[in-house]
Amino acid sequence: MPRYIATRLLSAVAMALLASLVVFLISALVPGDPVLAQMGDIAASNPRTVLEWRAKWGLDLPLWERYGIFLQGLAHGDLGISIATRRPVLDDIVQYAPATVELATIAFLLAIGVGIPLGIAAAVWRDTWVDSLARALSLLGVSAPTFWLAFIMLAIFYGWLGWAPGPGRMDPIAFPPEGPTGLFLLDSALAGDWEAWWDAAAHLVLPAVVLAAATIGLITRTTRAAMLDALGQDFVRVARAKGLRGRVVVLRHALPNALVPVVTLGGLAYANLLAGAVMTETVFSWPGLGRYTFRSAAALDFPAIMGITLVVSATYLMVNLLVDLSYAALDPRVRR
């Protein structure tokens, strides 16, 4: 097993580099000039200034040389300087990532915690009102556009009922908790500051529900289908013939056999939540990676885009590795 993990990690590094190369080539070949995107019209109209700028950011070098410089920096843990923010890209990412990680993790837990039980219930009580409800909810979650759902939720629970706080991670006048992780829930809990914890938690509810909606739908459907399949297996009938309780038959005999596709989907969903929170973060003014990505892309900020690509692809690869490893835990037939 350790050898397997080592092999997979090595190939993950290679894959991440390959992804960065692809992104590098695409962003270098698209029409559009980051310099022009940054400069005002007057500065951009002066060819000398433009040339100086291009030289300053190394945009006058041949493509392969630019990629070489990027790799060189990468070897030293340096992702370069963002053209837009003029700060090291790594610093930017470290600043924005925790907000996204916190949001995505809560949304993921929500999706799992709601989707799996709902899927199981729908399969066990197939073709009853429980099943219909679960299917209606998952259809709604999958098909409702994120921005629409976000506005509706804000309008109802913040604007009308006043049950939820507004956008942002904390109350604007509150001090964000100091802490090592940048995850407000964790930092405030570590500091014992429960007032801040409640504030952060309350701010998380709406964006997490919005972000999780589609994933809840997918996980419910997948769990339902996998459970129906497992419940139809011979060994489930054998378990019934043994006179075991319904709960034992469903949870001990059927569920473990239904989890493989759910875990596969869950892994992908978590990676997607991390990378795909752009819409939600924008509507809820969430200072996370999604908004950073959006701004960098709009500004054709090459170093930032490259850095984000690396981080996102590394996340995908890690999550995939974890998913593959979990197969062995779930199914003894996969173990070597």
Partner: peptide, 18 residues
């Protein structure tokens, strides 16, 4: 499963693999 028991046709699928 106590007073009356049943054995099925296909032993390959009748045992829970996990």
């Amino acid at each position: 499963g106590d007073r009356a028991a049943m054995v099925f046709q296909d032993p390959m699928t009748g045992l829970n693999p996990v």
